[in-house]
Design a protein around this nucleic acid. Structure first.
Lengths: 226, 226
DNA sequence: CGGCGCCTTGAACCAAGTCAAGCTCTGTGG
DNA sequence: CCACAGAGCTTGACTTGGTTCAAGGCGCCG
């Protein structure tokens, strides 16, 4: 049951890149305006660590971010993946998970304190809404972990398909490794691999390459995830 | 893998009991004052259903509440338990889980709209804090579900011990059934039972009765939950 | 071409689930 | 007050889905 993950993180935290113009932090169609700083992070570098004080919110500009935690026995749990446009870093006063760049990323940082000085009540309710979205994500993840291996993989594919505003629907380009997927779904890379092969054999997906998945029958997939 | 749970819910939604005086909604040491309504719910009755619009927040006055969801295959997932003083009902605009009374309960209802009319910025930040707490709870639950059966049960006992402001520390009085515990921990009642017996045989807990657990060695328990 | 990540596949193993009794409370009616 | 019924809990024997261990394949870059 022990460690498979043991990712050697690049220790180099990246430096600030440029100061963004007064920009629109526009998730959820909102209009929180503020000064933000964009930073770049190299693949597998750490954005923040799990227990650092949470003074910022983060918005993915490009790339993909994962939040994760290394358990006592060396295994790793991934809390969530964040795609361009997504906002992360919502945990209370102290981060409960670390955040890392899955691939090279640009991330917009917003100091939390700047959000509360403004008296604009719409900001408060937007924050509320984002936290609620995050909570729903976590709850969906809980439900996912109760299912069997095949269902988990199918759910994952469907989630990624839905969330990535991909050009051609039905094609999912995964930027994360099998190990990342396994740690997100709470299983081993071998099982992830087997389930994918199995789905391919059944003809419901195709894998032109390991990281590119074609969803050939959304109907069947949806039924499988029941 | 099919249904074990099939709880027959009492359909009788309870009526409003009395109107509370302008009361202090004082979780997190806050001072959100408002008119609230206290309602009583009988054991196993439904407080709200998963997909109803979420117009209220709820505070447990007495008793214990569970939030849960019935999966497609009939199994049930419990999102969380709420003890007296805890506040629940934070999901976005629509509840993702149902809420039910584990035992006879009194619950204080607060209409959300009343929270937003006031311009008091402290209310907003308190709401933010509560949502963050709820998120942390969910994340802790995620981590829990990655562990082995014994660890899950130990974690559950520790959580309950910590959260219940019990008179005598080290004694946990469970108001929920084995089935509730199993559905919270993502396993079967048999496994829960086996793990508890095992812990008792090792001498780290005692069970004067099925629902009353004495933690005989917090140190050992803490080590086991590693 | 060779080395190295990363992914896949196979076979053996094991933790938890399933199925099936049996036990222990608790409340109820005689 | 006792006997009985039923729900809830425990325990044992067997099955199984997923992990573990161990090769082997594929693709990429030097």
């Amino acid at each position: 049951m022990l460690s498979q993950t043991m990712v050697a993180l690049k220790s180099s935290r990246q430096q600030a890149d440029r100061v963004a113009p007064p920009s629109v932090f526009d998730s959820l169609g909102s209009t929180i305006e503020m000064m933000g700083t964009t930073m770049s992070f190299a693949r597998n570098s750490e954005i923040y660590f799990e227990s650092e004080p949470a003074d910022y919110l983060y918005k993915v500009v490009s790339g993909v971010v994962r939040t994760c935690k290394v358990l006592a026995d060396g295994r790793r749990q991934i809390g969530s993946f964040y795609l361009p446009g997504n906002i992360f870093g919502f945990e209370g006063n102290e981060h409960t998970f670390s955040a890392e760049a899955v691939v090279d990323c640009k991330v917009l940082l917003i100091k939390r304190s700047t959000l509360f000085v403004s008296r604009d009540p719409s900001i408060a309710s937007q924050l509320w809404g984002m936290a609620a979205t995050e909570l729903q994500r976590a709850q969906a993840h809980l439900v996912l972990l109760m299912k069997g291996a095949q269902q988990r993989v199918v759910d994952f594919l469907m989630e990624m398909s839905t969330r990535s505003s991909s050009s051609s629907a039905n094609v999912v380009d995964l930027s994360m490794s099998r190990q990342d997927i396994a740690d997100y779904l709470g299983m081993t890379i071998e099982t992830v691999s087997r389930m994918l092969s199995q789905l391919e054999n059944c003809g419901v997906i195709a894998m032109p390459s390991a990281r590119r998945i074609v969803l050939r029958s959304l109907g069947t997939l949806h039924r499988l995830s029941a």
